[in-house]
Amino acid sequence: MNPSVDALRATFGTAIGRALESCGDTIVYVARDALLDVMAWLRDTPEQAYDYLVDVTAVEYRDRERPLEVVYGLRSLARRADLRVKVELDPQGDLTVNSVVPVWRGADWLEREAYDMFGITFQGHPDLRRILMWETYTEGFPLRKDFPLRGRFSRAEQVRQALAAHPEAHYSMEELSIAEAYEELPADMKERLRRGEHGKLPDSE
């Protein structure tokens, strides 16, 4: 068992859930609200020094009773140690977890992918929108277990929707200029941007 687990328990107490070992890798469960603190602590504490984020992904089990897990792979390059941190979410409930982009820039696209595939909302992510599927994709979140392998619509409908998409759709100039100030935007504009509407600012309407 990785000694970081005991150090985590000593520092964060009840925010650290169970820890277990699988195939030689240590897995530690962290309460959802404490995630960002735990991650920043793991990176910045010299004895831990988990400076490298290997992966962010999610797992949904076939057993519907089991919670959906968001999985973070951490690594300390200097100590050559690995730690896997998991956060449990209720798949029927609120799929929201704090974004770790402030800690590791590399989480940016990985979290976008987890959002795209599982529908997990990463709070505080600078630009959370679909990355692999197109932005007006309406069938759902493909890697969820209730999503059928061939999609929800008939093939003809899928072809029709795909051909109706605009191949040159992109962020407008306005969106580009506000992308950096995304957090300060009003909620309805954020919502519109998240739905993939382009180039509609309050001024232009």
Partner: peptide, 15 residues
Amino acid sequence: DRGLRLPPGEIDEIS
């Protein structure tokens, strides 16, 4: 006018 090259039934059959 549906935005398809083939009739929908044909696409479903091919696919």
